[in-house]
Computed example of a mutant assay.
Amino acid sequence: MEYQARYITEDIKLSSYEDKFFKSDIMFDQHMLVWFLSGETKIIQADATYFFGKGDIFLIPRNQLATIINYPKDGQPHKTVVMHLSVERLRDFYASRKIKSMPLKSQKIYSFNNHPLLESCLASLIPYFDMKDIPEDIASIKITEAISILRTLDKEIDHVLANFEEPGKINLVDYMEKNFMFNLPMEKFGYLTGRSLTTFKRDFKKAFSMTPQRWLTQKRLELAYYQLTEKKKKPLDVCYEVGFENLSHFSFAFKKQFGFAPSYLTDKDVSH
């Protein structure tokens, strides 16, 4: 059995992965509040890596790039309660509150370390996943409760939740140099840099003198070589962390670029 999800509404789900692991590169369209019941997650961003496990609660803001790797642990599946805080619902919440939107200083994941108020709020959702007839307003009540608790725990969280701006046009070179390891469609990269797909491809070719896909593959292989030789990481870990979807594709591309398989660097302590 691979993946199961049970929903109270489309914004609140109980998610379970029972395979060895599940990996995805994601740009979150909505804020996500996550409570871990079992398993482990590794989240890799451009400038930080996070590990979360049983009991942890964290918030992933929208429009952030991340590689997420979910693992079962201790014989238990990777299981989480996930609450989406959509822009529409947040607009309604903040409509009567005078909050001045401020530019975000940094993109980060907010951890709330087993906080009893949040845990109580999210734990109260569990019985509803087994019900057929759910009160229509229960999701709205619970999401409003969660937002109120988040605002109590972090006085700066309004700057995240009440920021409804879409990405503006930014420096393409700086952004791609920082985020090339995320395997997303070109349309998403265009959106996050404030461009249409056509404009993104045109500006990219002008900046890098090659197509996005060729440049991305080259950068990912260069990072992979560094991770293997300097960080002494395993090929399987490197494969997923630098933006490849599977080990066979990574090995093929790596050998084509460097003349030997990634495993050669771990079998032989080569550093040329």
Rank of each mutant, 00 (worst) to 15 (best):
E2A: 13
Y7D: 04
S15E: 12
D19A: 14
F21G: 00
F22L: 14
K23D: 03
K23F: 13
K23M: 12
I26C: 04
D29S: 14
D29T: 08
Q30H: 08
L33S: 02
L33A: 04
V34D: 11
W35V: 11
L37S: 00
G39W: 09
D47E: 14
A48Y: 09
G53S: 15
K54N: 11
I57F: 11
I57Y: 04
I60A: 07
Q64Y: 03
Y71P: 06
P72Q: 02
K73Y: 07
D74C: 01
G75L: 00
H78Y: 15
K79T: 15
T80R: 15
V82R: 09
V82H: 03
E88T: 13
L90Q: 12
Y94C: 07
K100M: 01
M102P: 00
P103R: 06
F112A: 12
H115A: 10
L118G: 05
E119S: 13
L125F: 10
L125G: 06
P127Q: 09
P127I: 08
P127L: 00
Y128V: 04
F129V: 03
M131Q: 15
D133S: 12
P135N: 10
E136L: 10
I138M: 02
I141T: 09
T144G: 05
T144N: 13
R151Y: 05
T152I: 13
D154W: 06
D154T: 12
I157Y: 07
A162S: 07
A162Q: 00
A162W: 01
F164A: 11
K169S: 04
I170D: 10
L172V: 00
F182Y: 03
N183F: 02
P185W: 05
P185G: 01
F189P: 04
G194S: 00
R195N: 06
S196G: 11
F200Q: 04
K205L: 14
L216V: 14
Q218A: 09
R220F: 05
L221G: 12
L221V: 07
A224K: 05
Q227I: 05
L228Y: 01
T229K: 14
K231G: 07
P235A: 02
D237Y: 06
C239L: 02
C239R: 04
Y240A: 09
E241D: 13
E241T: 15
E245M: 12
A253R: 15
K256M: 08
F258Q: 07
F258K: 03
A261S: 13
P262C: 05
Y264N: 07
Y264F: 11
L265S: 04
T266Y: 00
V270G: 04
V270Q: 09
S271Y: 12
